[in-house]
Simulated assay, not measured.
Amino acid sequence: MSAGWFAAALTAAAMVADWWAVARSRAEVERWAKPAAMIGLLAVATLGGAGDTASGRWLLLALALGLVGDVLLLRDSPSRFAGGLMAFLLGHLAFVASFVLAGLDHPTWGWAGVAVVAGSLAVGRRILPGATADGGPGLAVAVATYMLVIGAMAVTGWATGSLLVGLGVSLFVVSDTVLAMGRFVQPHRWSHPVTMVTYHGAQVLIVWGLLGLLAS
């Protein structure tokens, strides 16, 4: 088995372990499985040649910032949530840079991203009022800024013309919408597992699709 496939297998195992830990409320397993999944995905991207291009290096930065955000969100507190929000916001900006450098050769595909964002806003119309009630206007502004940035990521991701990247950014929007709904509107037992499954699926599809673009 090549190093890349071995890293991919370990990454998949860490992701499944994290999903199980989240579903079973096993924090002691989540503490190592959650960061291990992103470390593994960083290794997969690196072994896949991401470091050889400017677009790929921005991808690696985005994944690293996702890892930071994951670690911060392992514990629930206002300060750690704010730090995680900032890490993921910067990560989404890094994804945008990566997509732009890879080439937005299919701008009309960007409308699929617009549709995904519009659907998310319709479903999550109570998120900003909930964020205001939870943390005041400052938190609401931060969440609104985050929503704007992930919207840009969705549009630019689809505009690359890669179906895998487009599906990945769409899953990212779904993941963040479920997370925000669970935190600011109505918590559900299934919110956290769905957030993590869609989040990991998003990261995998983006890495897979972007590495394919860069290799072509």
Rank of each mutant, 00 (worst) to 15 (best):
A3R: 15
G4A: 15
A7F: 10
M15V: 14
V16R: 11
D18C: 03
A21T: 02
A23S: 15
A23R: 03
E28P: 00
E28H: 15
V29S: 06
V29M: 04
E30N: 00
A37D: 08
T46C: 05
L47D: 11
G51D: 13
T53A: 09
A54C: 06
G56N: 09
R57V: 10
R57G: 13
A62L: 08
L65G: 09
V68P: 10
D70K: 05
D70R: 05
L72G: 03
D76S: 13
D76P: 07
P78R: 07
S79V: 10
F81I: 02
G83V: 11
A87D: 06
G91Q: 04
H92W: 12
L93H: 01
F99Q: 12
F99L: 09
L101N: 07
D105C: 07
P107G: 14
P107Y: 01
G110Y: 03
A115I: 06
V116F: 13
V116P: 09
S120I: 08
L121P: 12
V123A: 15
R125S: 11
R125N: 04
L128Y: 03
G130L: 02
T132L: 08
A133T: 07
D134P: 04
P137H: 00
L139S: 09
L139M: 09
A140W: 01
Y146R: 05
V149C: 09
A154Q: 01
V155C: 08
G157Q: 08
G161E: 04
V165S: 07
G166Q: 02
L171I: 10
L171N: 04
D176M: 12
V178A: 08
M181A: 10
G182L: 10
F184R: 02
P187E: 14
H188D: 05
R189G: 09
S191Y: 07
V194E: 11
Y199I: 00
A202L: 13
A202T: 04
L210Y: 05
G212R: 05
A215V: 04
A215K: 13
S216M: 13
